[in-house]
Design a protein around this nucleic acid. Sequence first.
DNA 1: TATGAATGAGGCTTCATTCAT
DNA 2: AATGAATGAAGCCTCATTCAT
Lengths: 215, 215, 215, 215
Amino acid sequence: MTISSTQKIREKKRRFLAREQLIIDTALSLLIDAGIERVTVAEIARQAGIGKGTVYKHFESKSEIMMRIMLDYEKSTATNLLAGIQATENGDPGAVVKAYFESRLANPALDRLVQQLEIRLEEEPSVARQMEELLAIRRSSIAKLSSMVEKLIKRGILENVPAHYHYLASWALAQGAVDVCFNRGFVDQIDDKEGLLRFITNIGVTMGNRGQLRG
Amino acid sequence: MTISSTQKIREKKRRFLAREQLIIDTALSLLIDAGIERVTVAEIARQAGIGKGTVYKHFESKSEIMMRIMLDYEKSTATNLLAGIQATENGDPGAVVKAYFESRLANPALDRLVQQLEIRLEEEPSVARQMEELLAIRRSSIAKLSSMVEKLIKRGILENVPAHYHYLASWALAQGAVDVCFNRGFVDQIDDKEGLLRFITNIGVTMGNRGQLRG
Amino acid sequence: MTISSTQKIREKKRRFLAREQLIIDTALSLLIDAGIERVTVAEIARQAGIGKGTVYKHFESKSEIMMRIMLDYEKSTATNLLAGIQATENGDPGAVVKAYFESRLANPALDRLVQQLEIRLEEEPSVARQMEELLAIRRSSIAKLSSMVEKLIKRGILENVPAHYHYLASWALAQGAVDVCFNRGFVDQIDDKEGLLRFITNIGVTMGNRGQLRG
Amino acid sequence: MTISSTQKIREKKRRFLAREQLIIDTALSLLIDAGIERVTVAEIARQAGIGKGTVYKHFESKSEIMMRIMLDYEKSTATNLLAGIQATENGDPGAVVKAYFESRLANPALDRLVQQLEIRLEEEPSVARQMEELLAIRRSSIAKLSSMVEKLIKRGILENVPAHYHYLASWALAQGAVDVCFNRGFVDQIDDKEGLLRFITNIGVTMGNRGQLRG
DNA sequence: TATGAATGAGGCTTCATTCAT
DNA sequence: AATGAATGAAGCCTCATTCAT
């Protein structure tokens, strides 16, 4: 019976984790659809078809759920970035930026939500530890980016300015591109979002390249 | 006696308006420092040194205070943009973008706050009318930008893509530049914010110019 | 100049009293139209075209304004009742009841308002004194009614039951008749209010007469 | 285990409903004792020994609690009325009126409270639906009364006037009778309330009967 | 273990009344 | 004398979190 007991425990764990993911997915969906202010724990539980108390078996607080969404997203972005860095080092100088933009613009609603969550949770003491973890991931990506950018500068591909100028400019443009997708006053005149985002991505790829700036 | 009476009334009005400004300034300061969620009407009143009820003599609701901040900012941005358009039409093609970036990056904390407020008030029915007013201002600016961009395209200065590609890209970059200033994980490594913002502004000025994009 | 000074003072008093009446009339009109809960002192002042502070020069409190309306109404009702008693003693046994009903049903909206005000102010300590005055008027009327009813009983016109049975029954019917005029669920089916009120008034005149009750 | 689980759920439901009733009863008691204006949700909760938030698990708003009291009362009155109509159709012409009066005068304080609540909630949009339900009950009762009254008119028992004259007169007298019980200035002189109410009820039974009115 | 009823701190807003001008 | 800006107590309601079952 040891085997079956082990199996039971595994099954239990599996179901526990599945439930956790269900909570996250439900929360994510609600947060995107209704906006951060309008989502309550009660509603998450209701939509997920579980009890409110159960939510608190998985997460210490509402903030932790949101933090988890951020963390998952940051990890995924970091992974995509890493792949881009790899591609760049394999010869295509624009690959990182492209990968980065595509990663962030693949699901602008999610990206924007995470932007908002970050502001919301910035000062939340209850998730300070996880926020630190998130920042560690970001710092690690940044370190890799930095060294990559420095190589490109040495190879004469990028302008010779501090490395962070380059990747922060990219970050900024991507961040803003996401916002463009949702700004009232813009959305109604954008009939060709794909084209716009391609245009912006191209700018991202080109900007900071040697010979581009006249300032 | 008529004179003194008139003077008294004027003095009263002046003080009333001064108090209104005091409320706005106090609210603004708190919103920037503490974050939208953490600011209450009670706290605004306390910081302004007035009673809670007094706030409601000047504004119908908390949302209206925030809306007012947005509106003031939008108007100021529109004015700066207009001046930039004028300068561009007087011969300097990069003037608009430069003016726009300088306007938005002059007080990034305020710009970022307004970004957040817009998201927060987007669906608030109680300020729908003022939001419409704000969008009208924005639309008017956009119309002027559009015609200006089209001229620059005709003159061969800008890439021949839909006009809104150009100004939305600028908007996006400015938006993102503001965020860069506050993103935890970035701020600590930016020792030379001025340089960075100049770099980004230059990108803004250059991007979309003919011969810049390789896509 | 003594004369002119006296005249001035009189003129002032006259205007002061006129203003007081204006406040009462405005309040009355608002109370009837909007309902007791929805009338504020600010609105009374605004409608009357005077300052809020001025209202408080005439009345100690909002309750006092309402009390004054009640008192005025009670006095008017008492006067009408007295005339009716007189008429009854002059030979028409039904005159009191008729006068009473006509008095109360002449302006049902006002009567109903006063009913509501009485409930509202019943326990209000700030107008306890005036309430006492009102009750004194009522008691005085009751005393006269009592003696009149007793005469009618002796003359064999009314049933020989305690005098207050008679006049309280009348009071009740009048009170209810007023309510009928406003009850949702009734009003829409009353196309002939005059006829209904005449019918009820007739009941009032007849009820308690000898030979009417079978119980 | 299924049984005990089912039992547990039932027990829970029972207690939930019991608490709901507790809230209603507490509210009712406070409303009668202190008057509508002086009852707050906080006080209801305190008196019921529960938290403020709990009240809102059972009712959407304070108005809904009051509406519920009204609805319960209207239903009970309608039931009593129906029984009276039945009795009248079984041969006793005065049975309806008697049943109706007894129903309303059984607990005058409650009846009066409901009168007040109706005025208060008349224009409250948040309970408009329930108010409609209440009026539907009332209309249904009225329809039955109408047809009954018409029969009695045909049988020559009641005066040949529009049917609603009869039942509205009854309603009015009952309404007023309730008010008599509480009117300051009357209550102190009523030592024999039972007798008075019997007297008034008799009037109700007799009034409108053929040969009673002289106009 | 899962549940959801219960909680109460805390937010927004109203309005009678005061008082400096 | 008249004004209306200022006040703050008091009310309603929300919702993250707890805990008994």
